[in-house]
Design a protein around this nucleic acid. Structure first.
Lengths: 198, 198
DNA sequence: GTCTATACGTCGATAGAC
DNA sequence: GTCTATCGACGTATAGAC
């Protein structure tokens, strides 16, 4: 009989992969991308270096894999924040949610958002930004439909907000500390830009 | 007597370097980063491939060198656009200038602005963004001082505008065509965000 | 410009699952 | 018995120090 993986083995494989990803995330959270060596990941995950390559073809794919895993959560959190309420409230909640979650783990967020890594991650970031923009476009379109926001190109405004939020957070995430006014100011900027009533 | 480069030789070297850079820019303008092979650059510049490496240590440095050269011009153009007039007019002129210049050569602008290339270029982009943000912060600070804009964190607003403009242009630059309303809409977004009077 | 240290990715051997 | 995931030392490239 040909070899086939049992459920137990499948589970172990998954666990190992998760352990490797978790180790990598911990390293990124502590010291950013420069700390992400395969040797360090392997040691922290309790496996040999060669094992890492059984789960990820190379370091770049490991980084992209982590990015995808983590960003799915972020998109979900932001989408959840935009579920109900006035359009103004939704957009405010989205910006606030994104910013506060990022600032809670600044080093990791900086690596995901802006740290120079490689072209593969850059490409993935472009995809992520479109996902966030789609979520914003929904909320903005809602606001236009209800007359809360003046008529405008929702797609353009959404992209602009994604860019604005990312760029404003880049520096605070990099240094590790944001001024107390950063998040409310950012929200105010976004709402003014959309023409929301005061 | 030790060897020393004469002025004539020095000039020839500079010319060669300029020719190589020009060839690289032409390739990027035509087909983006994927067309930037050292062999293609050398052929177009009329030099041997080895000669390219006498002026740039590797492809990454060539790309960064081009980026710096071109971006100096862009920062100058945007700064010049902000030289005089009302703060509203200055900011509008800056956004318009940047966007229109980019859209005039979309493929090249996309490569400079957002195309996945490598970490070295990413790092350079971060520097460039700060330069643009500084220019915007000047104009915004001016507007706050004259009472044209409501009181706000000029640095935050400047970063937000840089992010917004870059993100909004990314897609049109990538596809090669912008809707006719893109630039005016972007300007309107920026002025609303700053709280400029209608 | 050289030299050393660091780190990526590979490979043959091994242990264990089927 | 066959096949596979794991190990960990090694070759090689590269980057930073002197």
């Amino acid at each position: 009989m040909a070899y086939r993986r049992t459920a137990a083995v499948e589970q172990r494989l998954e666990d190992r992969r998760a352990a490797i990803a978790a180790a990598a995330i911990a390293l990124l959270s502590d010291h950013g991308y420069r700390a992400l060596s395969i040797a360090a990941v392997a040691e922290r995950a309790g496996v040999a270096t060669g094992t890492v390559y059984r789960h990820y073809t190379d370091k770049s794919e490991l980084m992209v894999g982590i990015f995808r895993d983590l960003c799915v959560r972020e998109v979900e959190a932001v989408t959840a924040a935009s579920a109900a309420g006035s359009a103004t409230g939704r957009v405010a909640a989205m910006v606030e949610t994104f910013a506060q979650r990022a600032l809670r783990n600044p080093r990791l967020a900086y690596t995901l958002l802006a740290e120079p890594v490689d072209a593969a991650l850059d490409a993935e970031r472009l995809v992520l930004r479109r996902a966030f923009a789609a979520a914003f476009a929904d909320a903005i379109g809602h606001g236009i439909a209800t007359g809360e926001f003046p008529d405008q190109d929702a797609g353009l405004a959404a992209a602009a907000l994604v860019g604005a939020v990312g760029e404003v957070l880049t520096d605070p995430l990099h240094t590790g500390t944001a001024a107390t006014g950063t998040v409310p100011d950012l929200v105010a900027f976004a709402l003014r830009a959309l023409g929301a009533p005061q």
